[in-house]
Computed example of a mutant assay.
Amino acid sequence: MDFEFSLAQLTVLNSSPIEIAKIAHNCGYNYVSLRQIYMGLNNEIRYDLKKDKKMKNELRSYLKNTGLKVLDIELARIFDGVEIKEYEDAMETAVDVGAKHILSSIWTENKGYYIEKFNELCELASQYNLTVDLEYVPIAGVKNLDDTLEVIKNTDFDNAGIMIDTHHVHRAKDNPKRLMEIPEKYFNFAHICDASKLIPKEKDEMTRILREERLYLGEGGIDIKDILNNMPIVPYSIELPNLKKVSLVGYEEHAKQCLISAKNYCEKYVHGRYSYPKEA
């Protein structure tokens, strides 16, 4: 089976858009997933393609010459006081570089407010023919599959999607078999990585691991195959930050090992919800 993979920004966090594209192409990825909406994290460098037209043109030329594509633009967070219109520049950038999806997550507990704002985000993105793919995060406001499905159920726009991250499914203790019940139209891409089976009890430790210490597929204790085999086959964006590995081998070698381990794992274990596994 042919799988497609994207190199996510968090895996090579401080790479510029052209740098991540070159790393992805050199390693054999199909896509890149670019951060153009910033989170204000420590040591996070901002590369704004809307303002840096020279870099944007260089990226577009590189994509055209190599066949590499941009999968999605991140991260349109919904939080108390968010101004959805401020994400419009990133949507324009997404169209300029050929991306099809905007990644979103929700970081407020105010349900009525975040459902309203998610609808507003979908409406704005629909003007650019972009999907808005909601990722639940166990340390955020929308933290599990039930929360996510409730948002989608209350969304009035058909460009809303659900973005499953293997790390978050495990940490939220969601039953992967429930993914089988979700219509195929809501799945556009997924995040994959591995991590320790043990779920941290402290929020700070959970945050540290998801930002600094995820593992190559097959190295940890997440039942990744059970998650992916209850979903349609979609492009897999490898979001796998690991500061120790990067410090030892650098971004490109780390990205290469991410892809090798993901390909090996998927070819061995993943068949998707519409296919059947090969006999042993």
Rank of each mutant, 00 (worst) to 15 (best):
M1W: 05
D2V: 14
E4M: 09
S6I: 02
L7P: 01
A8E: 00
Q9N: 11
Q9W: 09
E19Y: 00
E19Q: 15
N26C: 07
G28V: 11
Y29M: 06
Y31F: 13
S33G: 15
S33F: 10
L34W: 08
L34T: 05
R35K: 15
R35F: 09
R35Q: 09
I37M: 15
I37A: 07
Y38S: 08
Y38E: 11
G40T: 10
N43Q: 14
I45F: 05
R46W: 12
Y47K: 10
K56C: 14
S61N: 14
Y62P: 08
N65M: 13
T66C: 11
T66D: 07
L68N: 04
V70Q: 02
L71R: 01
L71P: 04
V82N: 03
V82L: 08
E86N: 15
M91N: 09
M91G: 03
A99G: 04
L103V: 15
L103E: 12
L103R: 14
S104L: 10
T108R: 01
N110H: 08
K111I: 07
G112Q: 08
G112Y: 07
Y114S: 07
Y114A: 09
Y114T: 06
I115C: 04
I115H: 03
F118R: 03
C122Q: 00
L124G: 01
Y128E: 05
L130K: 09
T131M: 11
T131H: 05
D133F: 03
D133M: 05
L134W: 06
L134N: 02
V137L: 13
P138I: 00
I139D: 11
A140Y: 11
G141L: 05
V142I: 11
N144K: 09
D146H: 09
D147P: 00
E150C: 10
V151G: 02
I152R: 10
N154H: 06
T155P: 07
T155F: 07
D156H: 15
F157C: 10
F157Q: 00
N159C: 07
I164F: 02
D165C: 02
T166I: 00
H170E: 06
D174L: 05
P176M: 06
R178Q: 11
L179I: 06
M180H: 15
P183I: 01
P183Q: 10
P183K: 01
E184T: 12
E184D: 14
K185P: 07
Y186A: 05
A190M: 04
H191S: 00
C193E: 06
D194H: 00
L198G: 02
I199Q: 05
P200G: 08
P200C: 08
P200Q: 04
P200F: 03
K201C: 06
K201H: 10
E202L: 11
E205T: 13
M206I: 08
M206L: 15
M206F: 07
I209T: 12
L210S: 15
E212G: 09
E212F: 08
R214C: 02
D223L: 12
I224T: 08
I224W: 02
K225Y: 09
K225H: 13
I227T: 00
N229E: 07
N230C: 10
N230W: 04
Y236P: 01
L240Q: 12
K245I: 14
L248A: 11
L248V: 10
V249D: 10
G250E: 05
G250P: 04
G250H: 03
E252H: 05
H254C: 05
A255F: 11
A255Y: 01
K256W: 03
C258S: 12
I260Q: 14
C266N: 02
C266T: 05
E267L: 10
R273A: 13
